[in-house]
Nucleic acid binder design. Structure first.
Length: 567
RNA sequence: UGUCCGAUGGUGUAAUUGGCAACACGUUUGGUUUUGGUCCAAAAGAGUCCAGGUUCGAUUCCUGGUCGGACAACCA
């Protein structure tokens, strides 16, 4: 519009310039023109009828992030207009998740706080002749709404007088009518090409107890009649929502205009999709209800509580939201990007320890029977301030099956008969014998160690192709590891054959439970803490852990380029 | 069939007034490394949905298509 004084759509931050997303562009323009003074006030408006997922995390980061960036405010508002589906359990979980993600809201509000005001708005509309009480049944209303290509027909009740409507609406509130017998509708245009404008329902009768207002009301506003006005009441400047509400915008604007109240600006963005998972509340709920997963916080769920339990950090999620940015086109984000953000954060923070997932016994035949050593191991090579720890070493060890090949394939750098390998933070060893069980499987490996190659000794600098992790058998701590994989096999779980649904795409191997061995240090780790098992991946201590049984979730594997093929 | 919205490497997001299509993930290659991790370096990969038009010049502006998504709950 304006052709002068255009804002540059990049920002200068410490020498680097970063592109602004389309919402920031709008906001900066609004600040420049002082459309709302220089105010920026957003809000995150969930319905407390379920648990938040990573799609909500995108919205939370967006709304709170914008407020922070522009020195504005962000409210948390619960859109609790349907008492039959909502509960304080969800209110509490939502608040916990938002806080955990790292955000503090300015105002905590509920649509139900505004029920009286909303009622008055409805009365205002009635008085202007813009709303009427309709006695049509649900089926009749649906039948007379028309279709996307044909107009609907006007309700026979549309011409009731203002006085009659006022009286009827008051009696609806007073509880004189049973559920479903009457509704309040806006009088707009039954022929509108926008279905939402065909005399939409404003209020319905619901003799249901509300989790906050109790039995004070037996009529409740529809979402469409509440949402925009709530934003207006809170003087929200930018009402950011997902694309499917684009069609609702004309209706919200109609209410605002007829009511002559403060007008926020609605901006729609494309919701988040990630491959190999589903993101709809309804589908996630069905996974919970059908016990496909173990609750909303199952470690495989894309819910915020599920990700938290899996070992995701708030920082990694915030960074993810930042990187995927926001736009209006439909998108499917590669799950590898999410995992990258996680690893990037965990790599800096995670304590390293050694654990052997699939053990093979390894005996150092030239190491004294009763000898034990405490070796120094680096806690985190990315953070020198974390220092070192002691790891016990002895004659009998465990190493991982993957680190041994009797007949090494090309480019296999680990242990094989006759070859040397380095035991991390310990000695260089050579495999001299493979002892087998009667069925041909490997019973144990016999190796010799070079006593002059302990880490720190001059001889330890000798070049060896591979370094592997290990655990002293005598000191090994057994624990339970829950190995998680993607919940669905195909990239798009919605892609199914005729007659099937997304459940047919479930990955039967999304959870494997094993009992590996770890170095004793694992006993020092608190519930929720995340560690890196050297060369394997990140794991976090699950809340199911007991003093007797340590349980760790596999958060995400290390990147690992080399894969053993076959077998 | 109606209305609205969208379309840029495999994925996501950029490209200032119309001026060499950039960044990240992923992939591949090389280097460093007592994690086949991290880190460092490099490469491949799009000519911007299509067809016209305006222009010296179009991802950007115009016209017409195509494809994808949303909308017909007394859900949000």
């Amino acid at each position: 519009m304006e052709d002068s004084n255009k804002t540059n759509n990049t920002e200068q931050t410490s020498g680097e310039s970063k592109s602004l997303n389309f919402i920031e562009l709008i906001i900066e323009e609004d600040i420049r023109t002082e459309k709302y003074g220089k105010r920026v006030h957003t809000r995150f408006p969930p319905e407390p009828n379920g648990y938040l997922h990573i799609g909500h995390a995108k919205s939370i980061c967006l709304n709170f992030g914008l407020a922070k960036k522009y020195g504005g405010k962000c409210n948390l508002r619960f859109d609790d207009t349907n008492p039959t589906k909502e509960d304080t359990e969800y209110v509490d979980s939502i608040k916990e998740d938002v806080k955990w993600l790292g955000f503090n809201w300015d105002g905590e509000y509920y649509a139900s706080d505004y029920f009286e005001t909303l009622y008055e708005y409805a009365v205002t509309l009635i008085k202007k002749g813009k709303a009427y009480v309709c006695d049509l049944t649900q089926e009749e209303i649906a039948a007379t709404r028309g279709t996307v290509t044909t107009a609907g027909s006007v309700s026979p009740y549309a011409q009731r007088s203002v006085d009659e409507n006022i009286d009827l609406f008051a009696r609806m509130r007073a509880g004189e009518f049973i559920d479903g017998s009457k509704v309040l509708r806006a009088r707009i245009d039954m022929a509108s090409p926008n279905m939402l404008m065909r005399d939409p329902i404003l209020y319905r009768i619901l003799h249901a107890e509300h989790h906050r207002t109790g039995n004070a009301w037996c009529i409740y506003p529809m979402y469409d009649f509440a949402h925009g006005q709530c934003d207006s009441i809170e003087h929200i400047t930018h009402s950011i929502c997902t694309l499917e509400f684009e069609v609702h915008r004309p209706l919200y604007e109609w209410f605002i205009q007829e009511l002559e109240i403060y007008a926020p600006q609605q901006i729609e963005f494309a919701r988040l999709n990630i491959n190999y998972t589903v993101m709809s509340k309804r589908k996630l709920l069905s996974l919970v209800q059908e016990n496909v997963v173990n609750g909303w916080d199952d470690q495989r769920m894309p819910t915020i509580c599920g990700l938290r339990r899996r070992g995701y950090t708030p920082e990694s999620l915030q960074n993810f939201a930042e990187i995927i940015s926001v736009a209006k086109r439909d998108n499917v984000i590669d799950v590898s990007l999410l995992e990258h953000c996680l690893r990037e954060d965990l790599n800096k923070k995670a304590q390293r320890i050694m654990a052997v997932l699939q053990p093979i016994k390894l005996i150092l035949t030239n190491y004294p029977e009763d000898k034990e050593e405490l070796l120094d191991a680096v806690n985190n090579p990315e953070d020198a301030t974390t220092g070192t720890r002691k790891v016990p070493f002895s004659r009998e060890l465990y190493i991982d099956q993957d680190d041994f090949m009797e007949i090494p394939q090309h480019k296999f750098f680990r242990l094989s008969p006759g070859n040397e390998v380095r035991l991390k933070s310990a000695y260089i060893i050579r495999c001299v014998d493979v002892i087998k069980n009667s069925d041909g499987s490997i019973k144990e490996l016999h190796c010799t160690y070079d006593e002059n190659t302990r880490t720190g000794m001059p001889e330890s600098n000798r070049k060896v192709k591979g370094t592997i992790h290990w655990v002293s058998a005598k000191h090994a701590v057994e624990f339970e590891a829950r190995l998680y994989d993607k919940l669905f096999l195909p990239e798009n779980p919605e892609m199914v054959a005729e007659g099937e649904d997304f459940r047919s795409n479930l990955n039967p191997d999304s959870l494997k439970i094993i009992t590996p061995y770890a170095e004793p240090f694992i006993k020092n780790i608190a519930v929720g803490a995340i560690v890196q098992f050297e060369r394997t991946g990140y794991f976090c201590v699950d809340i199911d852990s007991t003093p007797k049984q340590l349980i760790l979730n596999k958060t995400v594997g290390l990147k690992g380029a080399w894969q053993k093929t076959g077998k």
